[in-house]
Write a protein that binds this DNA or RNA. Sequence first.
DNA 1: CTATGATAGTGTTAGTTATACACTATCTAA
DNA 2: TTAGATAGTGTATAACTAACACTATCATAG
Lengths: 241, 241
Amino acid sequence: MEEQEQAHTYDAAKYDRPSVTIDVVIFTLIERELHVLLVQRKRWPYEGFWAIPGGFINMDESLEQAARRELEEETGVRDVYLEQLYTFGDPQRDPRTRVISVAYMALVRAEAQHLRVSDESHAVRWFPVRALPEALAFDHEQVLSYAIGRLRSKLEYTTLAFQLLPELFSILELKHTYEQILGEKLDKGNFYRKIKESGLLEETTHVREGRGRPTRLWRFRTDRSGDKQFVFRWREDRVAR
Amino acid sequence: MEEQEQAHTYDAAKYDRPSVTIDVVIFTLIERELHVLLVQRKRWPYEGFWAIPGGFINMDESLEQAARRELEEETGVRDVYLEQLYTFGDPQRDPRTRVISVAYMALVRAEAQHLRVSDESHAVRWFPVRALPEALAFDHEQVLSYAIGRLRSKLEYTTLAFQLLPELFSILELKHTYEQILGEKLDKGNFYRKIKESGLLEETTHVREGRGRPTRLWRFRTDRSGDKQFVFRWREDRVAR
DNA sequence: CTATGATAGTGTTAGTTATACACTATCTAA
DNA sequence: TTAGATAGTGTATAACTAACACTATCATAG
């Protein structure tokens, strides 16, 4: 709370203030595999290390606005799923000064990807979450594993997976996405049954041809207000947040 | 991320920095009812309004250390359950200056309560969550409802409820605690069955006499490493976080 | 000393959901 | 025409949920 101050005599300089940054863990699916966006640092500290994209917050923007700004600066995408994760504030996490970082997670569709290398970094790249760089800058390994954990746990009781898929997809593609993120195989028959019973999907007339039997394509229903919108569970296990 | 700076030429004054505070939503059970601790503000802004206890973060302490410090300053308790909730950072949330607040939730046992009125506030009081003040300071209504939502949802798949109970308790007391927080009645028989099957409780030889049949007292098992420690579910419904 | 009310605790059953796995369907390409 | 590949359906059993009836043990009133 904010009650250490005298009325009308508040002096902003009275207390030391930490720097506040926003880091955005950006996930996408590339060739059916879960990837995360990292940038390679150009300067001290952690020069040359890969890091989660982010930056300082402006004084006139909300945390979410800052996260959306960062996201757009790095990938050019807007209107994507964004969620606050956790705030990391260990006094030693940045060697320059006290930096408190509010971490966000974003899910973007594979389609819209126009990566931009900012002048603060050497490179920007998508990394498969199963093959990440050995060491990341700052405490970003911790941030990233927190994000992956959250993604997994929310996948089990929300419709988050749809945020990663294109507008039209097959049921087995959806199943594959779940398997990718959960890291385990799901039963085909049970998946079909559950997803159909959920009423979350809308059948389309489109099909996609492949090597075997062509597959029917579906769309995620965004209309339906209440029912089951966010309850689509696969397992009982759950992790603490 | 923190990469806008030149190596070794980092100038802390280069960017405006927001103030960062920690607010701690402290829950307890008093006479079997869920209560939350609020303090009454002495100064502008929101003079006279009730607020969630909190304060500015020191430059050399972690977020959690700051939360524990606040908690101890208000209630004198240590070693309690503490969890980071969410970070609130709307630019307009405090009329004095830009203030970003990291909210924590603490669960304390009814026993240890030595409230201290700090010189920043008129009063400190436990409020039943079913009878809160009409309006709270800042965006604290939002913070509080977030905390209650989190408490509810975690109750369903963790052993959080035990943090609110004394060391020895009866199974029906535990059931009552669940009912209090979830806001719904649970079936006695099913509760007995589930809680016993969970293996979370340890029977003691103690009983408590009352008006009817005396009740056996149980203890929460802290030993058991893995199994079911944090899976004790009551309902299927779940809310997004 | 017995009945009544109050609280504690157990048992049972029907309906639902999960799990595993076998089966059928429709396409391409040899 | 058949084999391989992928898509999609059906079903039996086990496990779990939800509702509720039942039994147990105390205090106290008559």
